[in-house]
């Protein structure tokens, strides 16, 4: 077992720890516990980053050097990293314990799925010719930052329907965070689709070929565009907006997982 697998294993355990510390916070309600949770979140992202970097270095040592964003396993690891990255970057805006708890749970799920599922190839594989492009970096990074922002949006959208005094932040706060993460996600998803189109032009000869992943990312894009229009033009708020963010996230999940497993296409190396 390579070092990077071990380091990423430690990161997975740290996500679990972050989750438990939040549970502790909700039972004790001590602000100091929350401060500890944040310290561990920072430590986790450092360990997580280290794991990715070590995997990157390891691939060069194997003579097949490439950025670890090339298969399903690597994308799951990066997805989890992106969720934590969004947490750290938007700390000021989204620092509500229930949100950080749910986000760490999402990262834990992604990391756990990546390491436990037997169908996920965990070893470093050489980069197939179709992926040998500098567009790989910018395309994958933008898409997963978008997915991560939509995770936060989904958390806020779902919590909107939960009544739990003292745990769930005020509805207006949830709505505000939901909106902020959707605009970040929408911008990054647009950038991801557009860079993907430019890449496709150089790799496949057409910037749009109605590949299932392309089609579903467009559907996701349209749903979030509807979210923004409903909010800005129609003035939709509260439950209806929360509902759209949940629907949007279902579409994200299908774009990421569903397309990989059910529909094969030009993106099938991502499985």
């Amino acid at each position: 077992m390579a070092v990077h697998h071990k380091i990423l294993g430690v990161a997975t355990l740290l996500y679990l720890l972050v989750f438990f510390i939040h549970v502790l916070y909700f039972s004790l309600k001590k602000e100091r516990v929350l401060a500890v949770a944040w310290m561990i979140i920072y430590a986790t992202i450092c360990v997580h980053t280290l794991g990715i970097v070590l995997r990157w270095i390891e691939s060069y040592r194997m003579g097949v050097g490439h950025v670890p964003l090339a298969n399903f396993y690597e994308s799951l690891i990066f997805f989890a990293w992106s969720v934590t990255f969004i947490l750290v970057v938007m700390r000021k805006k989204i620092s509500y314990p229930v949100i950080t708890m749910c986000a760490s749970l999402a990262s834990l799920f992604l990391m756990g799925y990546a390491s436990i599922s037997p169908s996920v190839e965990k070893n470093i594989q050489p980069l197939i010719p179709a992926l040998q492009s500098n567009w790989l970096h910018v395309h994958v990074v933008t898409c997963f930052i978008a997915y991560a922002a939509f995770v936060i949006s989904f958390i806020c959208g779902s919590l909107y329907f939960v009544e739990w005094k003292g745990v769930i932040p005020p509805k207006a706060v949830l709505e505000d965070i939901n909106y902020r993460s959707v605009i970040v996600g929408f911008y990054m998803l647009s950038a991801g689709i557009l860079t993907g189109a430019v890449w496709a032009h150089y790799a496949w000869g057409s910037y749009w070929s109605w590949d299932p992943k392309e089609t579903w990312s467009l559907i996701t894009w349209i749903i979030y565009a509807l979210f923004l229009h409903a909010r800005m033009v129609r003035g939709w708020r509260e439950k209806r907006i929360a509902l759209i963010s949940i629907i949007g996230f279902i579409s994200v999940v299908f774009t990421y997982f569903g397309v990989n497993f059910i529909l094969s296409g030009l993106h099938s190396y991502a499985t």
């Binding site: 010719p129 179709a130 040998q132 150089y202 496949w204 000869g205």
Partner: peptide, 16 residues
């Protein structure tokens, strides 16, 4: 090569 097409007079050739 894949990801490195030839372009001449507006016509592009891709390794397919």
């Amino acid at each position: 090569r894949v990801n490195d097409p030839l372009s001449y007079k507006g016509i592009r050739f891709y390794q397919s």
